[in-house]
Design a protein around this nucleic acid. Structure first.
Length: 262
DNA sequence: CCTATAGCCTGACGGC
DNA sequence: TGCCGTCAGGCTATAG
């Protein structure tokens, strides 16, 4: 689930449910997911704190506390957040459980434990965040920036879009979405793309992510304009009805329409 | 610089 | 029903 728009949805969810609530206790059920400090210190530093605001950097959630510390969550492949009230059984695969004052709770679920948890005073100094490329929806990510950055590469364009140090936040499904909307095959070399094609890719990075954010990453609501909800196995292209192509690029499942994408 | 591969972990699903 | 293989929207380390 978690690519940029999915993480953005969780950010909004956290803002709507958990802001300004006081943590009375935390349970770290999967200690290995916590990086950079021990469980005891982690629990101690969170106890009594309040969530001040939530930001997103690429696929990372950065939760500022009313202390010098920020709680950083990375959802991995299977991460989710669930806020609930009352004394209930935590949702399945809860790896971190935050208990707030007033009998409400926030569960960080993560079936495969591929997500990560950090607690630090300097979130933007974490290596995994520091090395991230530009935030695609920021105004300072312009076509000129994109063109200058892509000049340094000769790779197939899809793995390049997936490279977080190149552009931050795009994952496997959205990379395919951008290339479908741009009409570019995922196997095309980045150095073989024309100026017009580069422009189409750039424009669609913005468009695809904006649209997805607009519907809160519920792509089913974009079934008549988005590729993602129409890309199942044995499906045909929702625009031209040509059977879709499936292949593996850089170890990731890739899907495209050979007629719409050149 | 690039590509492919394995590894981290575990669940869901399809075939036999 | 049960076992087995395969796959999964992320990311890193490593080898060639």
């Amino acid at each position: 689930m978690p690519e940029l728009p999915d993480v953005e949805r969780r950010r909004r969810y956290l803002c709507a449910t958990s802001l300004h609530k006081k943590i009375i206790r935390v349970e770290l059920l999967a200690p290995d997911m916590l990086k950079g400090m021990g469980k005891g210190r982690f629990s101690q530093l969170l106890k009594g704190r309040v969530l001040d605001n939530v930001k997103r950097r690429a696929k990372y959630l950065i939760i500022r506390l009313d202390s010098p510390y920020s709680l950083i969550l990375h959802l991995g492949m299977t991460g989710d957040l669930q806020y609930y009230k009352g004394k209930k059984i935590p949702p399945p695969f809860t790896r971190l459980l935050v208990h707030f004052q007033g009998n409400s709770h926030l569960a960080f679920q993560n079936a495969r434990k591929l997500g990560k948890i950090f607690l630090t005073k300097v979130p933007y100094e974490l290596p995994c965040i520091k090395q991230l490329g530009p935030e695609p929806l920021e105004d300072n990510f312009t076509f000129d920036v994109f063109r200058e950055r892509i000049k340094n590469h000769k790779r197939a364009v899809k793995p390049l879009l997936l490279e977080q140090s190149f552009i931050a936040g795009i994952g496997n499904l959205y990379a395919d979405e951008v290339l479908f909307q741009a009409g570019i095959r995922p196997t095309r070399r980045s150095n073989g793309l024309s100026q017009v094609e580069l422009k189409r890719i750039f424009k669609n990075i913005k468009w695809v992510l904006d649209e997805a954010n607009r519907v809160n990453a519920e792509v089913e609501r974009l079934k008549n304009k988005f590729f993602i909800p129409n890309r199942g196995p044995d499906e045909v292209c929702f625009r031209c009805k040509t059977p879709l192509e499936h292949l593996r690029i850089g170890g990731r499942t890739t899907c495209y329409c050979a007629r719409c994408q050149k």
